[in-house]
């Protein structure tokens, strides 16, 4: 029952899918690879791909380890929507959630040598947006495509298609 897409939409310049995976980091890696492949196929710059992969790794490990407490009977739900300009990924675990504000600042000198607590900070730094739902068991990650330094002479995508 796991690993099957609940839906998949695939158009020339937009990919969407929703999937429920078992609570296992290997399954998480597979989704990560799938999303990275979509970004690469859509021509996202390597720097964006790096950022999304890093944030995904952190978010999935958080969901599997901390949210679901490595419980093999639990699952993680992932919703992904990637267009030419924006990658949006939502990850939800079955845990009780947490208060992001209560995570200690890992750059505080008192915490600098503690070997954990950096994932959240990396997600914030590398993504355009990171948001949690009220209960803290669902994270939304967004990465806007980095614009090339020169204003591309291609299509000026001014139109909003929402």
């Amino acid at each position: 029952m796991f690993q099957h897409d609940l839906f998949t939409v695939s158009m020339s310049n937009c990919e969407q899918f929703q999937i429920t995976i078992k609570n296992d980091t290997v399954a998480g890696q597979q989704v990560q690879e799938r999303i990275v492949k979509i970004l690469e196929d859509l021509g996202y710059p390597p720097r964006d791909v790096f950022s999304v992969r890093l944030a995904l790794e952190e978010a999935l490990v958080n969901a599997i380890k901390h949210g679901n407490g490595m419980d093999p009977t639990k699952s993680v739900q992932i919703e992904c929507s990637i267009s030419q300009d924006l990658a949006r990924i939502e990850i939800e675990d079955e845990g009780e959630g947490f208060e992001p504000e209560e995570v200690p600042d890992p750059t505080d000198p008192a915490n600098l040598e503690r070997p954990c607590g950096r994932g959240l900070m990396l997600m914030r730094s590398f993504m355009s947006l990171i948001e949690f739902n009220d209960s803290g068991n669902r994270v939304t990650l967004e990465k806007k495509r980095e614009q090339a330094s020169e204003n591309g002479d291609g299509d000026a995508s001014e139109d909003e298609s929402s």
């Binding site: 890093l54 503690r114 070997p115 954990c116 994932g119």
Partner: peptide, 16 residues
Amino acid sequence: EYLSSAALGKLITMDK
């Protein structure tokens, strides 16, 4: 090419 926060944790422990 890629490194996660969990790997940073190991490096910190190694440093110690």
